[in-house]
Design a protein around this nucleic acid. Structure first.
Lengths: 234, 234
DNA sequence: TGTATTTTTTTTGTCGACATAAATTCCGTG
DNA sequence: CACGGAATTTATGTCGACAAAAAAAATACA
């Protein structure tokens, strides 16, 4: 547990305050260290990070613009809820972004891109080998983010990163359920996607991305269903 | 020219400050009243809107998160540039969003949605009849925004609105070129799209949206090409 | 005259404080 | 004991001021 959030004042340089708060809050939100729906007290946060409320508020505005927190006027801002009732919109959008970014990566990737993508894939494979569920979540995100970067479309990339983050939050909810055979299969699917991108085979890349997305979506659905059954059984 | 931005202090109620600044700046940016690349002086803005720099800065952070301004650390924030070199990424993304939102609207629209969509279409038709280019841009945006709302997917909707706004900026650049027969055709295409949505004919809606997007993209391309030729001829 | 260096000015990032709107507590009345 | 309204407390929205960084101006030197 790194206590990066509790260092002495004046240890950070000027101008990095907002970015720092943004990173801390963002990580805590995506790791579910801050529970969805829980209120964020500006004063308390200001004390914890040893800075004034001004940079805190600016970071909160930024997080609100990205949908990670919700600001109620004249009332506390709260960590964004996970909308289980409308998860299908999430699945629909992230599936499309998986496909589009992988397609475009096959079309537009440049020499250096594959090096980065393969590096991310190596990190993901390492996490799977180590059975480190949290590392799997993080490295899987970076792998697909690298593909999105190679797709060279900032609009798709922006939406996809947002969706991947939201997915990170979802997976974090159920990460204990990762002790099955699926991760190893993801490694293989990733390898196939890299090959398709390298060969600039757009249709194959699309097909693989589509299947990969379906895998992940159905895995999350299973985890939720399993979770629901437990709840009903109580 | 409404001078909404120059009213007396204390005439606005508490809590609406940031929203107000955001709306003013956003409109001025999208209408090209603020030129792309031009710097935004916080102090000057604070004086013009008769408020302190704090709400100004929070509005700027929000605009930065949406890509409408760019903040250089410890340096002035500037109005986002129009990236003519990468317009194809814009065209690609907005075409896909036209299709996806229209498809999903055909699938998921609910009783009230068509009423709203038809109302927007009526406003657009009125603008075309009046040969009011600026109103055409605005009402066309609202028409497609209404379809996106009926599609009931906030992820697609968010990206699409961003793209429509960026398109508004582009069209505003060339709005004088609107004196041709195309707007009338857009009215007809809109009508067809409404019919397809009402009939829940997903594939037809997709096809119409796709063609509609192609129309608009090629029109913008033509305007830019025409503009370029003039520049070269000088 | 041109370039390097110091000084001044401008502008941003942050702070502490105050005013106002909700939330909470307290109290009186039925 | 419950209910409604007033008083208190808490937290947000905004402000003016200061400090640090960059830009601009002024000066020194070749």
């Amino acid at each position: 547990m790194s206590d990066i959030a509790t260092r002495k004042p004046k240890e950070r340089k000027r101008g990095s305050g907002v970015q720092f708060v943004y990173n801390v809050l963002r990580d805590e939100i995506l790791d579910l260290a801050l529970a969805p729906g829980s209120p964020i007290d500006e004063i308390q946060l200001a004390e914890r990070l040893s800075m004034s409320r001004t940079p805190i508020r600016e970071a909160l505005v930024r997080l609100a613009a990205e949908g990670l927190v919700t600001t109620l006027p004249n009332r506390s801002t709260v960590v964004a809820n996970i909308d289980f009732l409308n998860l299908h919109t999430f699945f629909d959008a992230i599936t499309l972004m998986y496909r589009v970014t992988t397609r475009l990566a096959a079309l537009h990737h440049q020499p250096g891109d594959l090096v980065v993508i393969r590096a991310r894939q190596a990190e993901f494979a390492k996490a799977v080998e180590d059975q480190d569920a949290l590392a799997m979540i993080a490295t899987n995100r970076e792998f697909h983010a690298a593909i999105a970067a190679a797709a060279r479309n900032p609009y798709y990339e922006g939406l996809f990163l947002r969706l991947l983050d939201e997915g990170r939050r979802l997976l974090r909810l159920y990460y204990s359920a990762f002790n099955d055979r699926l991760p190893q299969q993801y490694v293989i699917e990733h390898e196939d996607m890299i090959t398709a991108i390298a060969e600039r085979d757009v249709e194959k890349a699309d097909k693989l991305a589509s299947e990969h997305a379906d895998q992940i979506v159905s895995q999350i659905r299973n985890m939720i269903a399993r979770d629901n059954r437990q709840k009903i059984a109580l």
